[in-house]
Design a binder for these strands. Structure first.
Lengths: 246, 246
DNA sequence: GTCTATATTTAGATAGAC
DNA sequence: GTCTATCTAAATATAGAC
């Protein structure tokens, strides 16, 4: 990084009690928080261990002491959140799959909603951007983070889509899955351009609206004539929102 | 970069005659070719000026002599191709807009086809990945490459989409544009995961199939009931491909 | 325009005291 | 577990000869 604009992530760790530091757990959290934010903004190679240490307000030696190396720290950032987040996604998917004929709209909703709503939680915004960056990186294969932590649940969602659309070929389902993920990743990773090009009317800050838009749009693509979500903003006959939990 | 797997881009410049080097023009080309490939694979911060010099088989001093700095070289890579590529896209769009009611399918085709087919040309694969990386980077704003070189034509395409879909709100058009771009960027930047997760059946190597898939899929979303492209692989009543030039 | 050699800064990682 | 100080490698960029 060239000119760091003094991004201090420290002082209040994003979880746990602020003051206590049993066995350096609080230190680990401070470092992970700082690393998560910086990596999400500048990428793995755009951030130095010193940048992270400064942002976390700890010494450089401590970062290496707790995580061993930069690569291990990077992976550690993902591993910290992957279990709770994946659980959320699996829960949402299980509810949908509990039906005999799960609607594709609800599958898409379960796929998108946890990621978009994550942005409102502490550290969630950075994590959602970081995931987007890693998934889109052609070099992700050599690190194995995506294949280890994300591919399994991705396959579950693809299977769910296939169940919702039994007449669609596996190949088309696979393409459609990646189209959806690509759309989601772009608006998560670089919402600034979306806002810029739309004359400010498209703002990911309005999470609810974003989820509605993307789920509606892709549902139309899947269902063809069944729904009519592409009419002017006026509400259509079928419910516009894809909310599963009202 | 840590362990460079000896990616030599040199020996045969991707344009011009191989041997002549009037005023160092050939050297510039060799450097740009190498930089384009390496930046597209590892990102701006993942590549050193030395990596580029080695790959181009020139000395480090020459890289700085011709481009001044790393940032200028990075921008130079984009500037070299932006004019010819944008011209191609504008030509395709002009043909579509020449109609009274341009079909959205043809607008999408004009948007996607040049980028996907570019992959078959020398250096085109790297450039298409590089663009994808830059557009998705939340830090693109501070470099200004996207806003300077890509935003203008993006606005033209958004306007074309609006013309093709006069009843759709500007807001929905803007969202849909970015959904489409996001889908396109993901399969361009990291096709490996697409292939991995689909059990090898989704391969961007088949450019024609990819264009058909993405254009068909998104056309369905826009047109709702008008087309039925989400049926099993069997051809539907309406023409499956969105080719503008047969 | 191209080369060798080097100046200067920054990087990841560690040693050893407390 | 945390600190200061440091090692070593690699980075960007430039000087000066040809």
């Amino acid at each position: 990084m060239k000119t760091l604009t003094k991004t201090k992530t420290a002082s209040t760790p994003q979880s746990e009690a602020p003051s206590a530091n049993k066995n350096g757990e609080r230190t680990r959290v401070l470092i992970l928080d700082a690393a998560e934010t910086l990596f999400s903004e500048h990428g793995l190679d755009g951030v130095s261990m010193r940048d992270i240490a400064v942002s976390a307000e700890v010494t450089l030696a401590l970062v290496n002491y707790h995580f061993g190396s930069k690569d291990k720290l990077y992976r550690g950032v993902f591993e910290r959140r992957i279990v709770p987040v994946s659980s959320l996604r699996r829960e949402a998917l299980a509810v949908v799959l509990d039906q005999k004929s799960p609607p594709i709209r609800e599958v898409l909703d379960a796929l998108a909603r946890p990621w978009v709503e994550m942005r409102r939680q502490p550290g969630g915004l950075a994590y959602s951007r970081l995931i987007a960056r890693e998934v889109g990186d052609p070099a992700e294969g050599k690190r194995g983070i995506v294949s280890d932590l994300l591919d399994p649940i991705a396959l579950e969602f693809m299977a769910a889509m296939q169940k919702a659309l039994p007449r669609m070929s596996a190949r088309k389902v696979a393409w459609a899955y990646h189209f959806f993920i690509g759309a989601l990743l772009l608006i998560l990773s670089n919402p600034d351009r979306v806002k810029r090009l739309s004359g400010k009317v498209c703002d990911i800050g309005d999470e609810q609206a974003v989820i509605d838009e993307i789920v509606n749009f892709f549902s139309s693509a899947f269902l063809g004539g069944e729904t009519k979500a592409t009419k002017p903003d006026a509400p259509s006959k079928k419910p516009k929102t894809g909310k599963t939990k009202p």
